[in-house]
């Protein structure tokens, strides 16, 4: 039952699950880095991104990945709209205020989803979901491999932009010290809009790909959002490398638990183990001490 092949297959599945979490969490991390706020409406952007992709891929009939790109832009704009209307007025408030407001907005957007999407589960048609890749005696769904590839490309792209370009330097400056950044002429408001746009786009990419593997439904965003949110905390709030490692760890942990205990309680036990670590080290595995 616990042979080497099975365990390594579970670890691989976990790593692939982890990449979708990383894509969602990356947006949250960028937003947290600049905004010092936790965007609880992120899961709704993820769901709407998947829905936009469904509309362009299945209703209109575009290529799945082109549809995904359009969905990323639309979801990015939705995310920017959220920043302008809800989070900007809340800047400087206690942290939990943004948390409650984000949750309220999440429920509004999810329930709006119930009206637009209807009670049926929608699907995103993608050929790659039916293909299986084999290597070293392991199996992986091609769409999941594409998801991992997109996640890696996004990560490398984000890190390059942050480290090498002027815009990235401005973003890091706005994150390190918003006041000083303003003084040297960085438009911090534009930076906030940019991170919200990127965050929304990444979430839509994850939503579209996960949606094509399972289905698109109004409530699909809540758990991934909570998991992504926990990953951001574990990654040390605002650290990209921390987010990546924590995302992969959580994915593997969840898959191993689903196999070893029971799939029903995998989520529960994952959260329980994370809560335990969280209580011992509140600043995350990679965070600095308070």
């Amino acid at each position: 039952m616990f042979t080497f092949e099975i365990i390594s297959q579970q670890v691989l599945n976990g790593l692939l699950t982890g990449t979708s979490y990383i894509l969602i969490a990356l947006g949250l991390t960028l937003i947290f880095g600049i905004y010092r706020m936790i965007n609880m409406a992120h899961g709704a952007v993820y769901m709407w991104g998947a829905y936009f992709c469904h509309v362009f891929a299945d209703t209109i009939g575009l290529n799945t990945y082109l549809a995904m790109a359009i969905a990323m832009v639309l979801a990015g704009l939705l995310s920017v709209g959220i920043e302008r209307t809800v989070f900007r007025p809340l800047k400087g408030c206690p942290d939990w205020v943004a948390l409650v407001a984000g949750l309220g907005l999440y429920y509004a957007l999810e329930n709006f989803g119930w009206i637009v999407l209807g009670p049926r589960e929608l699907h995103i048609h993608a050929l790659a979901t039916q293909e299986v890749v084999r290597f070293w005696g392991l199996y992986a769904n091609l769409q999941k491999v594409i998801l991992a590839g997109i996640c890696m490309a996004t990560l490398v792209g984000t890190i390059l932009v942050l480290k090498k370009t002027d815009m990235g330097r401005a973003m890091r400056a706005a994150s390190a010290d918003p006041e000083a950044a303003k003084l040297v002429g960085i438009n911090t408001e534009r930076m906030s809009m940019l991170v919200f746009f990127l965050g929304g786009a990444f979430a839509a990419a994850a939503g579209s790909l996960v949606g094509s593997l399972t289905s698109v439904a109004p409530g699909m965003g809540f758990r991934p959002m909570i998991i992504a949110f926990v990953i951001v905390v574990f990654g040390g709030m605002g650290s990209i490398m921390g987010t990546v490692v924590a995302g992969l760890l959580v994915g593997v942990l969840q898959n191993i638990l689903a196999y070893a205990v029971t799939p029903k309680f995998a989520y529960c036990f994952t959260m329980l183990s994370l809560l335990t670590i969280f209580i011992i080290r509140p600043t995350g595995i990679f965070g600095e001490d308070k």
């Binding site: 409650v100 309220g104 907005l105 999440y106 429920y107 509004a108 957007l109 329930n111 709006f112 009206i115």
Partner: peptide, 9 residues
């Protein structure tokens, strides 16, 4: 529920 959520915001 949409309006309810917006009221919270």
């Amino acid at each position: 529920m949409v309006v309810y959520g917006l009221i919270i915001v």
